[in-house]
Amino acid sequence: MSEVLVVGGGIIGLLTARELVDAGAEVTLIEMGETGRESSWAGGGIISPVYPWRYPDAVTALATWSQHAYPGLAEALVHETGIDPELTVSGMLVLDLEEQARAFSWAERHGHAIETVEGPHLHEIETQLGPGLTRGLLLPHIAQIRTPRLAKAVRRSVEERIALRENEEVLELLVDGARVTGVRTSTGTLEARRVVICAGAWTAKLLEQFGRTPEITPVRGQMILFYGKPGQINHITLHREQYLIPRRDGRMLFGSTLEHTGFVKTTTAEVKEALYRAAFEMFPVLKRTPIEDHWAGLRPSSPSGIPFIGAYPAVDGLFINAGHFRNGLVTGPASARLAADLALGRTPILDPAPYAVDAAR
């Protein structure tokens, strides 16, 4: 019997397992496919919510805690595994003029640096911008991380310290009276004193047996990857709900869509073309830059974007850490720490009330 069973091997599940095993718990992690291959792999890895001033304070609290934690986490992962997740302070340019008042108000309340850049100065710091883009907001301290490398590094850091079971689907949560006792899977039964559901968009399906599920639904996002040159574009750049993320090696991610297609995560030619047009309108140089890849992932949406982190009502020993929508990477370290605090009965790093499963959203 494991002390804690973590269901779901995306970045949320992996980081949660890492927090638990670092605290001395005996941990089993079970994943229906391969770890880090769903929304964690597909995400862009901006260490900030996109347009962060649009989100509730509960999301900002998780994001801010995580932003402070990421440098230490990245350094520890390099030391432990030799895998560099490429945490890079790129800064973030927001080119939507109507966002200025809300952005400065948010920055002042939460202590985030922000400045206006316009005219020649804007094109000095980002020389490839389209000529029609003349003014923006710069958040100079925003970083990014390479999501597949992060997931691989976290997995490597825990795989010798936990029981890791991949390609094994959880079919049922086992309960004795009002207490969780484990899970039934496609290969058998696993017993555990506590279970933490970190199954992303699939979380609600796992909880259907109790007749009450958190409002977590899949939202498809498609992205394209350009094969560019290092230093060609330097900042994470947002415009008209789309973003570009330049990697150290010159590759550039551009996305992404918000599509309510259920659990269908296939790509479409129409979206690929629309993303391509939007990308070279932002940066004309991309019209001459080859597209290397095009993929889709399923984000676990939740009301107001606030994730569910905490105990599941009426079932002792059952916890949830899911529903992060577009912010799983930026809120991951804080979410994992908070979930571990609550599962282990420690003093939580943040007030858990806004994330409770039965909280009004």
Rank of each mutant, 00 (worst) to 15 (best):
I233K: 04
F226E: 09
L258H: 13
L286E: 05
P313N: 09
W295L: 07
Y312T: 08
L253N: 02
G323V: 11
N234K: 13
L318N: 02
Y312I: 09
P303E: 14
R247I: 00
G221T: 01
V285Y: 03
H239Q: 14
G323R: 07
R299K: 10
Y276C: 02
T257W: 07
E241L: 08
S304Q: 14
L286N: 03
F319N: 02
N321S: 12
F280T: 06
I236M: 04
T261N: 08
K272W: 10
Y312C: 08
G310D: 05
T261K: 12
R277D: 05
A322I: 11
R248L: 12
G231R: 10
G323Q: 07
I224R: 03
F226P: 00
L298T: 04
K287T: 01
P300K: 10
P290D: 14
K272P: 00
I236G: 01
A279S: 08
E281N: 08
I233M: 14
I245D: 07
R288N: 13
W295K: 07
A278Q: 10
P246T: 00
P218Q: 13
W295C: 04
P300L: 10
A274G: 00
H294T: 11
I245W: 09
M252A: 08
V315K: 04
I245F: 10
S304E: 14
L286W: 11
K272F: 12
A278P: 00
G305V: 08
V285M: 07
Y312A: 05
A278K: 13
K265R: 15
Y312H: 08
E292L: 13
T217V: 14
P214G: 00
I216L: 11
I216D: 05
L253C: 01
F319C: 04
G255P: 01
E259G: 01
P214M: 01
L238W: 15
L238V: 15
Q232R: 03
M282F: 04
P218W: 15
L238M: 13
L225D: 02
K265Y: 12
H324N: 11
V219A: 14
T261E: 13
Q222G: 01
G305A: 12
R248M: 06
E259P: 02
P246Y: 06
I306H: 04
G323I: 11
I306W: 08
T267N: 11
F263Y: 15
P313H: 10
T267S: 07
P313T: 07
R277A: 09
I291T: 04
A311C: 02
W295Y: 13
G297D: 10
V315S: 02
T237I: 05
A279C: 05
P230M: 05
R240A: 10
R247F: 15
